[in-house]
Design a protein around this nucleic acid. Structure first.
Length: 366
DNA sequence: AACTCGTGGGG
DNA sequence: TCCCCAAGAGT
């Protein structure tokens, strides 16, 4: 059992060594070269469930396209989603756009500068609110992400399940209680340590700046931590994709405004119930009665966070003549409110369509 | 509390 | 090939 005095020493060691290490060893990242709250905001939204190396090119491009809140608010949702194309979790982009418009209309164009103000905006939760408030506005609040949960549980040799809300609450309070004045650097330091040293697998304890205070290092339990129950496997779904060609153009449809890949562009796609392209042909015939028979042209698998699509592609041709692109298109038992648009586009003109990777990677098969 | 919501990298 | 998982939020 640790004495109170020892606990105090471990906390002081963590504060001092972490801040020192972070100042001297932090990676040179584009969003660390600014204190602009807007830029910090964008980077923190992109960082949600996304590794830093992945987001950097998106961040740079996004800031060029939309350099401030006003520019973002003035953009169309399609433009914002397009800038997010390939990054995933697209509701982040829609919420970002919504929030920018709210800031213009309700906050006189000025971002809230407190944690409590920030988390009222769509897309900004406890972590992101804490990160922006502490990094951009120097507020003494914690920012507990997966890195911080792992680092703190290891440092304290805690076997609490980091997937449980209770654990996050306790860790948040613990960090909150030991936050130094440089709260932003401390929060960022904890995350940097988790990303670079205290990694989930093969942590580099021998070069860790806080190993002398780390209780799991002392107990030899670092490899067992953090405790986290494994998530269940993705559901496999057999899908049929319809590639409808007409005079050199392909038929694209916009996905519903909620759910998977919401608002993104797509090929017609249905879940298989029989075989050999029957389902997708039936679907397309709702809009194009005169349709050729399906020709199988390949297959592809796409893994989402919770679903796996096993896709079979079938190509169709329309008879010559003029076809109006249908005004609406439904994805099945949908109650989506907004009208779904459709479009015929040639492959060299789809640059303005936000196409998720699940579909863009099919293009090489065509 | 349990689900939904993408994608890419690494072991 | 399969598993894990990543600077989470919304419902």
């Amino acid at each position: 059992m640790l004495t109170t005095e020892n606990k105090t020493q471990l906390i002081t060691l963590l504060q001092i060594e972490l801040l020192t290490w972070f100042e001297g060893s932090k990676r040179d990242l584009p969003f660390r070269r600014t204190k602009n709250p807007y830029a910090i905001w964008i980077s923190e939204i992109m960082a949600q469930q996304t590794q830093i190396d992945t987001l950097i090119p998106y961040y740079t491009h996004f800031i060029e396209l939309f350099p401030d809140v006003a520019a973002l608010a003035l953009a169309t949702e399609d433009q914002v989603i397009k800038a997010w194309e390939g990054l995933g979790y697209y509701s982040r982009a829609r919420n970002l756009h919504k929030a920018a418009k709210i800031i213009m209309s309700d906050y006189d164009g000025c971002m809230p500068d407190t944690f409590s103000g920030l988390i009222k905006l769509p897309g900004i939760g406890p972590y992101t609110g804490g990160a922006i408030a502490s990094i951009a506005f120097n507020e003494k609040v914690s920012a507990v992400d997966g890195n911080v949960l792992r680092v703190i549980c290891r440092y304290c040799n805690s076997f609490m399940d980091i997937g449980e809300a209770k654990t996050k609450k306790i860790v948040t309070q613990w960090v909150e209680a030991i936050l130094p004045e440089a709260a932003g650097n401390f929060n960022e330091g904890l995350m940097e340590l988790g990303a670079v040293i205290c990694t989930p697998q093969s942590p580099k304890c021998l070069v860790c700046p806080v190993r002398l205070g780390c209780q799991s290092f002392a107990c030899g339990t670092t490899g067992e931590l953090p405790v986290k129950k494994k998530k269940q496997k993705q559901v496999r779904k057999e899908m049929e994709v319809g590639i409808l060609k007409h005079q050199g153009e392909l038929f694209f449809v916009r996905r519903p405004s909620s759910g998977l890949l919401a608002g993104m562009w797509s090929f017609p796609i249905v879940e298989t119930t029989t075989d050999t392209g029957v389902d997708i042909k039936r679907k397309l015939e709702e809009y194009f009665p005169e349709l050729s028979d399906p020709v199988f042209i390949g297959e592809s698998r796409h893994v989402f966070s919770h679903i796996i699509w096993e896709m079979k592609l079938y190509q169709f041709e329309l008879p010559s003549g003029v076809f109006e692109s249908p005004e609406s298109y439904t994805f099945g038992k949908d109650k989506e409110t907004l009208p779904i648009r459709t479009q015929f586009k040639s492959l060299d003109a789809i640059d303005d369509l936000a196409l998720p990777v699940a579909f863009s990677k099919l293009l090489i098969l065509l």
